[in-house]
Write a protein that binds this DNA or RNA. Structure first.
Lengths: 179, 179
DNA sequence: CCCACCATGTAACATGTTACATGATTGG
DNA sequence: CCAATCATGTAACATGTTACATGGTGGG
């Protein structure tokens, strides 16, 4: 199962029957932080899952007279979701950071680092604001992934801060803070 | 410029004139750790860059009588490389970790974490072995990205270790080690 | 000589990205 | 009533992934 399919199934479980549009809204609102998906992809995926029998389709007409398509989990869909949750196979993702690529190929570290540092600080602030909002929230999953995000942002900040240098633009530290 | 294009240009600068096959070998050997690229993609990209005038093309015949295509940076190609190195725009990558997705959607943390922990420990060991090999190596870029990779592997290990639990399968710690 | 692997690509398909299109609703 | 925005999709194109194809080379 592709990640996008898993996302669609998982969100439909939470939402109950919903249109791809609603799924997309939910995706953006909740896990947009560590895994975004464009709406065109959501539409394709709901179609595909319906064709595979994991979702049921219902054509609706809105009060306004406009058509829309509502999908819901079938029994097979729920089973697939459960199965996917039980997978423990570990294929590690790559960092795939364009900034890292530039660094690798000889970009001047300091100016790059200044921008990266600022961006990661903003991201960390956003994460922490969210965590403050739903500290201790149930279910646990989202809270844990948020924690992962925060940890990695902090790691990035450490990394780029070392390269950003002081006011004179010199690196403050290059040797690894090992141990 | 796409990341793949940048990779191809950067590697061709190091290699001098080379075939897509050689570029791919180099890519795997050097930055396969944080950004892999399939060889089919390298072929497409060299074609595209040549069409855009950033690479020159030369058809060769190997000693064995087999044909191959050798690409080399043009002046425009070098200029594009320099320009890209100067970009500092920061669009942050997402974590996009399938394991995190499972966690988010309610997978049981402990068994997932056990596998993830093992995988990340292997990856960390590989990184550290490499770093031991070329500690202090020049140029600096690759060494720095390796450091980033190590930092993030450690962060993942911390994260999953907390979820993996002791021998009894209970989480050892769930509240954030904040500070 | 044949099998495995290296070198060199091409093709087919899935996924991701960006842009386009268009009907309802709502605020000014 | 007009513009902006919400809701609902479709289309075109780029990128990434997987599989296929084929010529040389070297070892058993």
């Amino acid at each position: 199962m592709t990640p996008t399919a898993f996302i669609v199934l998982g969100l439909l479980e939470r939402l109950g029957p919903a249109s791809p549009y609603e799924v997309k809204q939910q995706a953006t609102a909740t896990l947009g932080n560590f895994w975004s998906t464009p709406h065109s992809q959501i539409y394709r995926t709901t179609e595909g899952l319906a064709a595979a029998g994991l979702l049921s389709v219902r054509a609706e007409t809105t009060p306004g007279g406009r058509g829309r398509t509502v999908y819901a989990l079938t029994r097979e869909g729920r089973a697939a979701l459960t199965a996917e949750r039980r997978h423990t196979a570990a294929d590690l993702p790559e960092l795939r950071d364009p900034a890292l690529l530039r660094l690798y190929f000889g970009a001047d570290p300091a100016p790059l680092a200044v921008e990266q540092l600022a961006a990661h600080r903003r991201q960390l602030a956003a994460y922490e604001a969210r965590r403050a909002q739903d500290d201790g929230a149930e279910p646990r999953g989202p809270w844990l992934t948020l924690r992962a995000g925060i940890g990695h942002e902090r790691e990035w900040i450490k990394f780029w801060r070392d390269l950003a240098g002081g006011p004179d633009g010199q690196p403050r530290q290059v040797a690894g803070s090992d141990g």
